[in-house]
């Protein structure tokens, strides 16, 4: 070993840190989730721990509290506090035409198949505040397919669905969304789709004419129709493997033969038990087609 590097200090041993602090936090967290489930029926027990913990701590700080247990106490006795946590845990930040190349691939590889169907049912699962739903509706309008399509947009949280129905998005996002729209192969001027008002950009009502917004919980609810396309991007990254497998089964069972599943860029069916039931339609855009 070169001496210029000097002698590293030994990494601090386990004796130096506060004992079992995180084991305790783990107990607190699992008690909180159990309490939320039993009192309110929302089951977050199979969410991925690392991001769940961050979101819970953000709520702890926002409530002016200092421990997971204190939040549990407040949640169980104060429904308004539970609603705030539910927003924290269920809002998935997204953008219109996020990952524009996904929409390019959708136009090139999914739209031609949809043209052969008399009628198309699309499920946007975990639609949050609706940015993807509006993006998809715009794309389908431009491809002249919208009139024979129904989009089912679902989310666990009624409050975000209400916002999605409203179709108002922040004005300061329009520049970014316009760029995304152009890169996504948009065929018009993006500004034709919304009206700039003082509180935001109000998107055209015609975009939601064929959209059904409905509450659906991927953790506990069953399939409710047969679909030609299911889009669920960056939703399952918040789930642990067991829950992911279950939701993959739900999607597989909900897709018609040759139905298409669209996931986020960094998600994969490679680890799921249903991998064999699909072929890759576009591996880098994570578009898969059910083949049996």
């Amino acid at each position: 070993m070169t001496s210029s590097v000097g002698a590293p200090r030994e990494p601090a041993g386990t004796g130096e840190r506060p004992p079992a602090r995180d084991d305790l936090e783990e107990i607190e967290l699992s008690l909180l989730l159990e309490g939320v489930y039993r009192q309110y029926g929302f089951d977050f027990r199979e969410y991925a721990p690392a991001s769940l913990r961050r979101r819970v701590w953000r709520r702890i700080h926002a409530e002016g509290l200092t421990t997971v247990s204190a939040l549990q106490d407040k949640l169980l006795h104060d429904q308004a506090c539970m609603e705030r946590l539910l927003l924290d845990l269920s809002i998935n930040v997204t953008a219109m035409f996020r990952d524009p190349t996904f929409y390019v691939a959708f136009r090139d590889k999914v739209v031609p198949a949809l043209r052969t169907y008399p009628f198309t049912r699309i499920w946007v699962a975990g639609c949050s505040t609706g940015e993807e739903v509006y993006s998809l509706a715009i794309l389908l309008q431009e491809e002249k397919l919208y009139d024979r399509t129904r989009i089912y947009a679902t989310d666990i949280n009624e409050a975000v669905l209400e916002r999605a129905r409203g179709g108002v998005f922040p004005l300061d996002k329009m520049r970014e969304y316009t760029q995304n729209y152009i890169k996504a192969g948009g065929k018009q001027a993006f500004s034709e789709y919304y009206l700039a008002k003082y509180d935001g950009a109000q998107f055209q009502r015609s975009l939601t004419e064929n959209v059904v917004f409905a509450q659906h919980n991927l953790v506990s609810d069953r399939s409710f129709n047969e679909f030609n396309v299911i889009i669920c991007r960056n939703v399952m990254i918040y789930f642990d493997r067991t829950l992911q497998d279950r939701v993959h089964r739900l999607f597989y069972e909900s897709l018609a033969t040759f139905g298409v599943l669209g996931l986020g860029h960094k998600e994969s069916i490679r680890f799921s038990p249903h991998e064999g039931g699909y072929e890759e339609l576009d591996p880098s855009e994570k578009l898969y087609r059910r083949i049996d």
């Binding site: 991925a48 721990p49 690392a50 991001s51 961050r54 979101r55 998935n92 930040v93 997204t94 960056n234 990254i237 918040y238 860029h265 960094k266």
Partner: peptide
Amino acid sequence: PPDYHLLVERGFFALSVDD
């Protein structure tokens, strides 16, 4: 990856698109 948070669990990765 760009535009994602990368988190570590014991032995594998998790992603988030939180703020």
